[in-house]
Computed example of a mutant assay.
Amino acid sequence: MNLADSIPTHPAALSGKAPRALRDRMLFWGLIALFIFGLFGLIGATGWQETWDELRKLSAWQVGVLLALSMINYLLRGLRWHILACRLGICLPLRYSLLHFIGGFAMTITPARVGEFVRLRWLTRMTGWSIERVTPLPLADRAFDMAAMGLVLGVALLISGQGNISAGVVAITAIASAIVVTRPKLLIKLVEALFGAIGRWPRPFARLRQAARSMGLFSNAPTTGPALFLSVVGWMAEGYALYLLLQWMGAEVSIATATFIFVFATLAGGLTGAPGGLGGAEATMMVLLAMNGAPLHVALAATTVIRITTLWFAIALGAIVFPFSEALSHKSKTA
């Protein structure tokens, strides 16, 4: 079954989806408004002039460096997406894979980031595959992201001296999660156990079980090694960007500590369930920066800039690329 075939066309079904879409939009804009309100509240509490002075320290070339480091992360992870897609049997040209991966960023701030699954819609159109056959791709992509972030976080904690036991726990947990996701037998047992506990929705669980069988494709060394390496380097580039930003603002924070703060804040924001980690990531980053000696107005300015050059930059790139990916998938479908 093609993904497009699963979209309801009956008027009653469409009318049922309208209130849900309106609710999602209201939730999204409500979260954005709450984030902006909280940001202005923090700026007011720390002093407008102090925060503005920190922002004015940055030159155009420095902002360009931050954006370039973010772009390195996106391109490396896009290359990882291409490698995983080829392993699954969808070996499209690299430029198509990059268009799909970056175009999906336009949907980052949808609830639970489910909008990023638009990449699967493009793939089903271009290949004619069913949604079940391409579903393992984003699961493997997330697994390698989690494993890489766990490794980077664990090493950064060890080097910065902020904790040894916790670093090992984080790294082991992330790697264990990646192992489970890329081992079909373990994943199938997990899906079956979850279905046994819930006892409902057999069809979605059957699809998950079918997708789980394909996850073993990603567990061999020729796939795992490059995918994990690209992920680690990509997230280290983002940590280095925060380190440079803090140095430019006069905050004495080591590169290991800056990397730990960025990765941990990103993970913490994701755990909140808010679109793009809004609110949670910013609050976590500010607290950790303040705990490591950065003045509050510096922590606020650095957090604002780094989120603009990472999250919002990705969304802007995705919005630019999205129409091209959409048009490409339609063209391939009719070709």
Rank of each mutant, 00 (worst) to 15 (best):
G30A: 01
A193T: 13
M215F: 09
V287A: 14
G41C: 01
V233N: 06
L55Q: 11
P93M: 05
G154T: 02
S70V: 09
L92P: 08
G16C: 10
N220R: 05
L242N: 04
I172N: 05
R142C: 09
F195D: 09
D141H: 09
P11E: 11
P93L: 06
L3E: 14
G279T: 01
G44C: 03
A335D: 07
R20K: 13
M291C: 05
I72S: 03
I315C: 01
I43D: 01
W201H: 09
E192D: 07
A237S: 04
P323D: 10
A68R: 07
I32R: 00
R203G: 06
S254D: 04
A106L: 09
N292A: 04
I255S: 13
V321P: 03
E132Q: 12
F262I: 07
I72E: 00
A148V: 05
I165M: 02
S97V: 06
H297W: 10
L14I: 12
I179M: 14
L186T: 07
P202Y: 04
V253I: 13
V321Q: 11
S160T: 06
P111I: 00
F117C: 09
R209V: 04
H10E: 14
V233Q: 06
V233W: 08
T135N: 07
D24Q: 05
S70L: 14
I102Q: 04
I72R: 02
P19T: 15
W61Y: 05
Y96A: 15
L190I: 13
S130N: 11
A281R: 08
L267G: 02
L67C: 09
A274Y: 02
P295V: 06
G128V: 03
G269L: 04
G199N: 05
R125V: 04
I131F: 10
A106R: 15
A314T: 03
I72K: 03
F260C: 01
G276I: 03
L55K: 08
L311T: 10
H100V: 15
F37K: 00
R113D: 01
A13C: 06
A211N: 07
L137A: 09
M285K: 05
V298T: 09
L84E: 12
H10M: 05
A33M: 02
T266K: 00
G273I: 10
T257H: 03
K185R: 11
H10N: 10
G234I: 02
L39T: 06
F264R: 00
V65L: 15
Y243C: 06
I72D: 00
A237W: 02
I165N: 00
P226N: 02
T108R: 00
T224E: 02
N2V: 11
L55R: 08
L158G: 08
V263S: 00
G64L: 10
H297Q: 12
F101R: 08
E54Y: 10
V233G: 05
A21W: 12
I131H: 07
I32S: 00
V181A: 14
V65N: 14
R20I: 15
L120F: 13
P136H: 08
P295Y: 08
A212D: 12
